[in-house]
Amino acid sequence: MDAAADPPSPGLTERQRWMAVLARANAAELAALLETVPPLPAYRRLRGPESGLVMLRGRTGGAGAAFNLGEMTVTRCTVRTDDGLTGHAYVAGRDARQAELAALVDALLQDATRHSAVQQAVINPLAEAQQRRRERDGRKAAATRVDFFALATMRATP
């Protein structure tokens, strides 16, 4: 599936923004980027990683009363680092490794001494790649925009 979606809106907190980025990163990407920020603190899992369901809701007519549309899979994990920081993750799909690494990164980013290194090494490249994919799909969509020719204009052409 294409990872296209709206760019994070400006009203979001910094933590909401990095969680959104982590939710769209795969486990291999996360593991590779985390290799570049050693040494990582030891951590233990407080909950999960465990897979379950989210009941998705829509709105009648697009903006009216809520209704239950159907479910999706989600995987969640909560970790605590030896520094005492708790990280949470809920990510679409069933990738336990992604959820665990996302929870770890969530904890690391709450540590003032590590924040900027992790943000630069992990979040920024992921966010940029996700933004590039969104823009690429947006440009492909824009290339299929219809230009109508009014018949009057066509008749005027000799």
Binding site: L53, M55, L56, R57, G58, R59, G62, A66, E71, A141
Partner: peptide
């Protein structure tokens, strides 16, 4: 799906804000 626990429901999806294809 009957083998998985339901954790939560989502907020209603904002279809007006979808990334349009």
């Amino acid at each position: 799906r009957t083998t998985l626990p339901r954790f939560i429901h989502s907020e209603p999806v904002d279809t007006a804000g979808m990334a349009i294809r």
